[in-house]
C-alpha cells in the first residue's frame, strides 16, 4: 500500500498541519504531537496522516466532560516504522454527538468506533455497520456517559448479611 513513502516525523506533521489546516488544527501546549482538531477537518487530517505513513490507528476513545457539555474524542495514530504516536483530539457537543467515521481510512476504526458508539452513543457518519458491540441488542442507555443511571435487574446489586 505505502511502499516508498517516507515517514513524516513529528516536526513535519506539525508543519504540514499548520500549512494545510491553518486555524482548524492547533498543537496543544507543552506537547509535541497532540493536536486539537476541529470536527470538520478530522477526515482530511486522517487522510493526510495515512499518506504520510501513519498506518497504525492504535486507539479511539472518548471522554465525557459533562460540566462543559461536550465529548472529547481521542484518536491515537502511530506508524510501524519509528513508533511515533500522533494524538488527535476532537471536541463535539453532547447534544448532537456526531463525527465523521474514519473507516474508509483505517479499517481498524470499524470496531473501535462501534465500541465508542456502544459506550457513549456517539454517531459516526459514514460507518458501514454501526451497531452495539459489547452490550446486547436492546440495552438502553450509554453506560460510560457520566449521567448514565443504571437500574439494577433482579440479578444484580450488592447483598447484605443480616
Amino acid at each position: 500500500m505505502l511502499n516508498n513513502v517516507e515517514i513524516a516525523g513529528k516536526q513535519q506533521v506539525a508543519a504540514e498541519f499548520a500549512a494545510r489546516f491553518a486555524d482548524k488544527i492547533e498543537l496543544i501546549e507543552n506537547t509535541d504531537s497532540e493536536y486539537m482538531v476541529q470536527a470538520e477537518v478530522l477526515l482530511p487530517a486522517a487522510e493526510y496522516l495515512l499518506s504520510a505513513g501513519y498506518e497504525f490507528l492504535a486507539d479511539i476513545t472518548a471522554v465525557d466532560y459533562l460540566a462543559e457539555g461536550k465529548f472529547r474524542l481521542i484518536y491515537q495514530v502511530g506508524n510501524y516504522q519509528n513508533g511515533d504516536l500522533i494524538t488527535l483530539k476532537v471536541e463535539i457537543s453532547r447534544e448532537e454527538p456526531q463525527v465523521n467515521s474514519l473507516c474508509a481510512v483505517w479499517k481498524a476504526a470499524n470496531w473501535l468506533e462501534r465500541e465508542v458508539y456502544d459506550m457513549f452513543g456517539i454517531e459516526f457518519a459514514g460507518h458501514p455497520d454501526l451497531r452495539r458491540i459489547l452490550m446486547w441488542d436492546g440495552f438502553e442507555g450509554w453506560p460510560l456517559r457520566k449521567d448514565f443511571v443504571h437500574q439494577p435487574t433482579k440479578y444484580q446489586g450488592r447483598r447484605r448479611l443480616d
Binding site: M135, Y155, G157, R158
Partner: peptide
C-alpha cells in the same frame, strides 16, 4: 460467589446463585 470486585457494574450478575 457474589459478583466479586465487579458487583456494582451495570452488566454483571451478582453471583451464580442468582441464576
Amino acid at each position: 460467589i457474589s459478583g466479586g470486585p465487579f458487583v456494582d457494574s451495570y452488566s454483571v450478575v451478582a453471583g451464580a446463585d442468582k441464576v
